[in-house]
Simulated scan of single mutants.
Amino acid sequence: MATLAQVVDTGVSTAAQLEALCAAKPTAVFFWAAWHEPSKGQMTQVFDALAGQFGAQANFVKLEAETVPEISAKHGVSVVPTFLFLKAGGELMAKIEGADAPGVAAKLQALVASGAQGAPATSAPAAGAGSQASEPDAAMSLNDRLARLVSSAPVMLFMKGDPSNPRCKFSRQIVELLGEEKIPYGSFDILQDEEVRAGLKVYSDWQTYPQLYAQGELIGGIDVVKDMQAEDESLAVQLGLADATTTDSSGSAAMNVIVDVTQRCKHLMKRSKVILFMKGNPDEPRCGFSRKCVALLREEKVAFDSFDILTDEEVRQKLKELSEWPTYPQLYVDGELVGGLDVIQELKDSGDLKETLAGSESSE
Score class of each variant (00 low, 15 high):
residue 173 Q to V: 05
residue 316 R to M: 08
residue 145 R to Q: 05
residue 90 G to C: 04
residue 265 C to R: 00
residue 363 S to W: 11
residue 307 F to P: 01
residue 18 L to I: 10
residue 281 N to E: 13
residue 162 D to A: 14
residue 211 Q to W: 06
residue 101 A to S: 15
residue 43 M to L: 13
residue 45 Q to T: 12
residue 80 V to Q: 05
residue 340 G to M: 07
residue 84 L to I: 02
residue 320 K to C: 07
residue 169 K to L: 14
residue 350 S to I: 11
residue 353 L to Y: 07
residue 195 E to A: 10
residue 150 V to K: 03
residue 284 E to I: 11
residue 302 V to A: 10
residue 169 K to S: 13
residue 5 A to P: 00
residue 149 L to F: 05
residue 86 L to W: 00
residue 319 L to G: 02
residue 323 S to V: 04
residue 193 D to Y: 02
residue 149 L to E: 01
residue 310 L to Y: 03
residue 338 V to A: 08
residue 233 E to Y: 01
residue 80 V to Y: 09
residue 124 A to M: 00
residue 202 V to Y: 07
residue 11 G to T: 15
residue 74 K to Q: 14
residue 39 S to I: 11
residue 284 E to K: 09
residue 209 Y to I: 09
residue 105 A to Y: 02
residue 243 D to C: 13
residue 72 S to P: 02
residue 18 L to A: 03
residue 307 F to R: 05
residue 173 Q to W: 05
residue 281 N to Y: 13
residue 242 A to N: 03
residue 211 Q to Y: 07
residue 286 R to W: 06
residue 273 K to E: 12
residue 273 K to A: 13
residue 149 L to V: 05
residue 17 Q to C: 02
residue 53 Q to Y: 02
residue 186 G to S: 11
residue 175 V to C: 14
residue 279 K to C: 01
residue 104 V to R: 00
residue 38 P to W: 12
residue 29 V to S: 10
residue 139 A to Q: 15
residue 223 D to K: 06
residue 219 I to V: 15
residue 238 Q to N: 07
residue 144 D to N: 15
residue 230 A to F: 03
residue 200 L to F: 07
residue 143 N to M: 02
residue 143 N to D: 13
residue 242 A to F: 07
residue 139 A to K: 14
residue 355 E to K: 14
residue 80 V to E: 03
residue 142 L to W: 08
residue 226 K to E: 14
residue 34 A to F: 10
residue 154 P to H: 12
residue 81 P to N: 03
residue 278 M to H: 08
residue 130 G to K: 11
residue 313 E to T: 11
residue 74 K to L: 10
residue 69 P to A: 01
residue 86 L to M: 07
residue 193 D to F: 04
residue 71 I to K: 03
residue 194 E to P: 03
residue 307 F to L: 12
residue 117 Q to T: 08
residue 57 Q to A: 10
residue 99 A to R: 06
residue 284 E to R: 10
residue 6 Q to N: 12
residue 185 Y to N: 10
residue 315 V to G: 09
residue 146 L to A: 07
residue 266 K to Y: 06
residue 20 A to V: 08
residue 269 M to S: 09
residue 173 Q to D: 14
residue 205 D to M: 00
residue 266 K to D: 14
residue 310 L to G: 02
residue 128 G to S: 11
residue 342 D to L: 13
residue 307 F to E: 03
residue 7 V to I: 15
residue 317 Q to A: 15
residue 216 G to L: 11
residue 317 Q to I: 00
residue 299 E to Y: 03
